[in-house]
């Protein structure tokens, strides 16, 4: 094999990669935050006793979890404008990843809600709180603590899904790498460094979530 590693071209364009990584993180954070709001509403709907809440929520979750995200990305970017709904690349991708993470986070949150004792809701009712006050002051904060340990795999997986934005030329990390690859022909070096950046970022995300988990842990 006559290939000698030469990282020069990649280092010269490292800034470009880092900008890509920053955009990847930006896409992930924005989408996951919106997705968390969607997921929270869906999770409460999923555990509700009202069929008119359960059925649409279940439908949403099932449909989205059975669609490849790349199909959704292409659908939003190419098909939605045809239906009169025009968004730029970045907004279009954030829309898709938000809607998609909503479905995954809904399932995670639902599991977290189920493990909260019913007695706490009753205690809230007994002092005169409304159902909504109970959800915001008691149930949601406890649910977050319940799900944090299992949240990191979902969050990391959603972060990695940002690489699919390359398919519609959003200049995030994967797209940036491809550009460097094409211009420098340093195939191995480019994808090695890019992979390392993804792995390192995922480690940081996991560490950050473990830190939050420890901070929120209840003293005993």
């Amino acid at each position: 094999m006559g290939y000698t590693l030469n990282f020069g071209a990649v280092w010269r364009n490292f800034d470009f990669l880092l900008h890509g990584l920053m955009l990847s993180l930006g896409l992930a954070v924005t989408s996951i935050l919106i997705g968390a709001a969607i997921g929270l509403v869906l999770a409460f709907a999923l555990i509700s006793k009202n069929r008119f809440a359960v059925v649409p929520a279940r439908l949403y979750v099932t449909v989205l979890r059975n669609l490849p995200i790349l199909v959704l990305v292409l659908f939003a970017y190419f098909a939605l404008p045809q239906m009169g709904f025009r968004l730029d690349k970045i907004k279009s991708f954030v829309l898709v990843l938000s809607v998609y993470s909503g479905a995954y986070l809904a399932e995670v949150f639902r599991a977290g809600l189920l493990s909260i004792p019913k007695g706490l809701t009753e205690a809230g009712l007994a002092i005169g709180l409304t159902s909504m006050q109970i959800r915001t002051s008691i149930i949601a904060p406890l649910m977050v603590r319940n799900v944090l340990p299992s949240l990191s795999s979902t969050v990391i997986s959603l972060f990695k899904d940002t690489s699919l934005a390359a398919a519609i030329a959003v200049p995030e990390l994967t797209f940036a790498a491809r550009k460097i690859n094409v211009e420098s022909f340093r195939v191995i070096e480019t994808w090695m460094i890019t992979s390392a950046l993804y792995v390192a970022t995922c480690f940081l995300i996991a560490a950050l979530l473990r830190f939050v988990e420890r901070r929120l842990a209840l003293p005993r």
Partner: peptide, 14 residues
């Protein structure tokens, strides 16, 4: 208007 105490205490743990 009524107060209630439960068998399982049901304090808000957070």
């Amino acid at each position: 208007l009524t107060g209630m105490a439960f068998q399982q205490f049901n304090l808000f743990p957070h």
